[in-house]
């Protein structure tokens, strides 16, 4: 599997996700600058976390209209897998690749800690190494991760099985207490209709190496390599 990581001014998880990808692929990852209009021929495009364009106007709003995003959208429409993490999730919702918006956390605080996620769907290239119902531990680090969409969109996402992850307790209970940021229906990550684009607030790349305290995130990169190689 060949992978590219998009780099915006203000991205700060671009190298982390490249390291996590290289660990699973065994190949160097292409780094693509936001002003580039072409992306190398790859199987996966990662849109990383950070504070692209200083979060000006709204998180992800400026990056969504950067030159490289036109190409990301074009590739996504052709079926190239897109993994959008944290600020990346904010960017792809602003770009219209995924529905909804990430609003300010309910308690207004920046939250940086591990959370538990319930895997809601293992039928994608991203989640194939998990089993539906699995509880995994992945860190979050955001001030704007409060997922919002209108009821109709939420019902559509649920009906089509496009909720990828929900915040839950360590035992797997999806409760208000386990919801760190006020997200509608505890949603932590969603797919597009064809399950080729995944947007999620938690950072799988931050727990993909035992030295860093856990490997629950690694299964996502391994699954991508297995599916896309």
């Amino acid at each position: 599997m060949r992978a590219a990581v998009i780099v915006f001014p203000g991205s700060n998880c671009d190298r982390d996700i490249a390291v996590a990808l290289e660990q699973s692929t065994g190949k160097p990852t292409k780094m693509v600058w936001h002003q580039d209009t072409e992306i190398p021929d790859v199987d996966l495009i990662a849109v990383p976390g950070g504070f692209s364009y200083g979060d000006y106007l709204r998180c992800g709003a400026m990056a969504a209209h950067s030159p490289v995003m036109r190409e990301v959208k074009r590739r996504a429409e052709k079926g190239t897998r897109v993994l959008a993490v944290c600020n990346g999730f904010q960017i792809v919702t602003e770009a219209g690749l995924l529905p909804g918006v990430l609003m300010r956390n309910k308690d207004l605080r920046f939250i940086c800690r591990d959370v538990h996620l319930k895997v809601e769907d293992s039928q994608s290239a991203f989640t194939a190494k998990y089993t539906t119902g699995d509880v995994i531990r992945i860190p979050i680090a955001h001030a704007e991760g409060n997922y919002f969409a209108d009821q109709k969109t939420l019902d559509e996402l649920e009906g089509e099985g496009r909720v990828a992850f929900r915040y839950c307790s360590p035992e797997g209970a999806v409760t208000e207490a386990a919801n760190p940021n006020g997200s509608q229906r505890n949603i932590a990550g969603i797919f597009n209709k064809s399950r080729t684009v995944l947007g999620m607030m938690p950072h799988p790349e931050r727990l993909a190496d035992a030295t860093l305290g856990g490997t629950d995130g690694r299964a996502m990169f391994d699954a991508l390599v297995e599916t896309l190689s």
């Binding site: 106007l57 209209h65 918006v101 919002f148």
Partner: peptide, 9 residues
């Protein structure tokens, strides 16, 4: 519509 506002919210 294109940039200044996010019409979802």
């Amino acid at each position: 519509k294109k940039l200044l506002a996010n019409t979802v919210i």
